[in-house]
Design a binder for these strands. Structure first.
Lengths: 262, 262
DNA sequence: GCAAAAGTGTTAGAAGTACACCCATGA
DNA sequence: TCATGGGTGTACTTCTAACACTTTTGC
């Protein structure tokens, strides 16, 4: 801050947070998007619940990441938690800040400009919105879906997303890289999106989807054996038309100890 | 951005960039800091060259990270590059954005508030400065030092920093973690801070300082042999009172190829 | 010849990879 | 009894870590 004085053409951009909420439904990685509505009313005033949508490229509205301008009395992290909560009802989910996007022209697409004016009432003189992006990895289950529909939100498969508002395609791509890197050193993030009890096959499936490769079944069992925090239970599957699989659970206490000694 | 409408108490904070410039002098890791001057004039108008300073806890001024409010026509990355250039004269150095700091009270220390008013002429109503932090790893050499002194800048040993302005202690600690993580996947960053020609001992010393551990000499030679981009030269040290060490150089072309196939 | 740093090879354990068959269950 | 997916062991390679002595040079 020493390199400009009173002279510098300082200015105040808007600061927002955007949340890249990855979800796993047991089969695919998804991302939670909301409609960039053409209506000028805010969703709080005019909730329009509707069925979880499919991508519709020809619709007049575009999809975008959930986000919000930060409020005066909020920390960045708090704003991100608020966005998550208002959209999904979830609290205390670790949200990871990964990058700030502040290019001069990131809000220059005419459609986006129009939307910002109508929906946010931003005056014509606004210059830019600097957004601080967060990601989280969520378990897709029944609790989330109904809330999402209030915001015309939908889970979209991560592969083959169409064109999104602003620079949100880029933000998601970036989030994905940070997610992978984060998971390397924090594998617990993956266990959060499995059921409390899970089978070896479920864990393997998750690894295969996440890392985009296949794992030899035998070697994967050995890999699991080397994770002391993956604890086999006595319980097994029931009612399956084949040999019943053993259940495992993730032991966080054990996980934290394991990390310390490593 | 769907979770607030016209209703939200949106506001515009200042947005700044701060640069954590790590430096290596062949022996220690340092960080480049500037004085949080009590004078109200900007350094451009009143450059006061002085000898590279030592930490002086009792002085009326505190040390801080170099940084700047972003200008209207600047991208965040451009602002960070500008700060780096104005302070060191260096261009085209990769600066890595790593985190945005936007806590409500990060600029609430009375001394910092006073400084912001005097030095930046920020009016009394400012609420907050959201700062986007960058780091880079530099080779400390003669070209940097003279420029630094114009800003009352000094290289401080990374360990044992005193109390800095704002939340800059925290920012540096965070930068350090990101730097380590970055170097894991991008080891080239370490070779940038070695001389063009370096000995195995120099490389080992760097690794030991950087990773805070010692390396067995023989194993380290094997480690080097597994880095195809570290090329032995025919040249050797001269005039040393012991067996002359071989020189090596970092081959970037080879490095890039090696990364692709991995 | 001596002080000071350079350079070199072997062994053991841990982790990763490739590969094929029998087991338990419900229908 | 059959279709379906669950579960297991061995051999090879690669990486890591521990460990001690000889070489070269200037003084």
């Amino acid at each position: 801050m020493e390199t400009d004085g009173k002279n510098g053409p300082a200015f105040n951009p808007y600061v927002s947070v955007d949340c890249v909420l990855f979800g796993y439904d047991g089969e695919r990685l998804m991302v939670l998007l909301v409609r960039q509505s053409e209506a000028s009313s805010s969703p709080q005033q005019d909730p329009a619940p509707q069925a979880p949508c499919l991508a519709d490229e020809t619709a007049p509205s575009t999809l975008k990441l959930p986000g919000s301008i930060i409020y005066k009395e909020e920390d960045l992290d708090e704003a991100a938690q608020r966005v998550l909560y208002e959209l999904t009802g979830l609290k205390n989910i670790p949200l990871h800040q990964f990058h700030a996007f502040g290019d001069k022209n990131r809000t220059s697409n005419p459609r986006d400009v129009r939307w910002l004016r109508r929906f946010h009432g931003l005056d014509a003189s606004f210059e830019r919105i600097v957004t601080v992006a967060y990601f989280a990895l969520l378990k897709i289950n029944r609790r989330i879906a109904p809330l999402s529909s209030d915001y015309e939100a939908c889970w979209m498969p991560l592969d083959g997303l169409g064109f999104l508002a602003f620079d949100h395609n880029r933000i998601i791509e970036s989030a994905r890289e940070y997610l992978y890197r984060h998971a390397e050193t924090n594998p617990d993030i993956l266990f959060n999106i499995l059921p409390r009890k899970f089978t070896a096959a479920e864990l393997r499936r998750l690894f295969e989807v996440f890392y985009g490769q296949t794992y030899d079944v035998r070697n994967f069992h050995k890999k699991m054996a080397r994770m002391p925090y993956v604890c086999p239970l006595d319980e097994r599957e029931k009612g399956v038309p084949h040999r019943a699989a053993r259940y495992y659970r993730f032991d966080r206490v054990c996980y934290n100890q394991f990390r310390k000694i490593k």
